[in-house]
Amino acid sequence: MKFIKLGEVGGSHEKTIKRMGELLHRFGDTYAHTKFDNLLPKDLKSYKLSENPEKSGKAEKARKEWKYETGEMLAEKIPDWIIFINYNVDKYGYSFFTNLFIQRKVFQGKTFSEYLREVYLLKSSDKFILYGGKKKTVMWISTGITGDHFETDAGYPDMIYMRPEWYLNYVKNLTWILAYRFKLNLKKFDISVFNEMVRFSVENKCSLKGIIDFEIAKKRNKNEVFIPVFYSKINRGWASIDAVYNTDYLDTANSVLSNTKKYIKRSKALIINEGNETHYGKVKIQLKKEGSWYNYGDYKEYAQDYFVIKFNLL
């Protein structure tokens, strides 16, 4: 509703677009980081997803148990809420959102948050907390981050192929939000391209990085796809820690390259620079891969900074 009702931010088109992006990122995270059929974050540890889950069969166990049950279609819910909220804002002003006394008056003794929880949550133990959303404290300082992606799951709950139906539910709702905001004809929405991408993702147990960029390139009448290598740097502290303990960014980019090429070929397109996709630059980073922390006086240089796939549609 914030996205739909957002006005101009600071008199700037750029700031408005940025705020829209922030809101849509938050909306996406409410799908990527939630809906585990009431599993609590601590319960995820039983899957041992940070320990080669595909080989151990734990990932398959998670896929079966994170089954898709229900998903609200926002097109059937939000318009009525907008009418309701507009009515109360006209009556009480914007303090309707912050004044608990007014909210209890409107919702028969409940706050807005309590009322929403009662209406939408499946079980009393559900909470309005994103998975991985609890802050941790280190030496009495709140970090604002969690270590769940390091110690619990290595990011598996974020992977579309783990919960494909839930992702497609998100796509449909995101489409409705965009159509409602910008007065677009929802009947023209073709979900078949998303169905095909998700089908490929499930079959190959991969992300949509590169794949969705290929589909966007086609829509823009472009004939190349860029796949960046996300190297850690001194101003990307947590990424650098991730590079030591969890993720090989170059290996990840190579995997994206391989899956994207496979998808492009399956999509009846011809790759015209086969074998020459690597762009050679001079990327210097302040982290030794074999180390456990920064070494500020040392640099490691990499040749690859991104890949580019050039293609022609057949």
Rank of each mutant, 00 (worst) to 15 (best):
M162D: 06
R181P: 08
R163H: 12
R181D: 11
N173F: 00
R181M: 12
D158I: 01
P164K: 05
A179F: 00
L174H: 13
L168D: 06
F150P: 00
R181L: 10
M162P: 01
P164N: 06
D153V: 00
Y156N: 01
M159C: 06
Y170L: 13
Y170K: 15
N169D: 15
A179H: 08
K183C: 05
L178V: 15
L174K: 15
E165P: 00
N173I: 09
R163T: 10
T175W: 03
L178R: 06
W176I: 08
P164Q: 08
E165Q: 14
K183P: 02
I177D: 00
M159A: 09
Y170C: 11
M159D: 07
E165K: 13
W176Y: 15
D153S: 05
A179E: 02
K183F: 07
N173R: 07
F150T: 04
N169Y: 02
W166L: 13
W176E: 01
P157G: 02
Y180C: 04
N169S: 09
L178P: 09
G155V: 08
K183T: 12
L168C: 07
N169I: 00
L168N: 06
T175C: 12
M159L: 08
I177F: 15
Y170N: 07
W176T: 02
Y170R: 11
T152V: 14
L174I: 14
P157C: 03
P164A: 12
Y167K: 11
D153E: 02
I177T: 07
I177L: 15
Y180V: 01
P164Y: 10
R181N: 08
L178T: 08
N169T: 13
Y167G: 10
E151H: 04
P164V: 11
I160N: 05
L178M: 12
Y180I: 02
T175P: 07
T152H: 05
R181E: 09
A154E: 05
F182R: 12
Y170V: 09
K183Y: 09
V171H: 02
P157F: 04
W176P: 00
R163A: 11
F150C: 01
F150L: 04
W166Y: 12
N173E: 06
Y180A: 14
E151P: 05
Y156L: 06
P164F: 11
W166P: 01
L168H: 00
Y161L: 00
K183M: 05
G155M: 08
N173D: 11
P164E: 02
Y161V: 03
P157A: 07
E151W: 04
M162F: 04
M162E: 08
D153H: 14
F150R: 08
L168I: 13
M159I: 02
I160R: 12
W176S: 02
Y170F: 15
A154Q: 04
E151L: 15
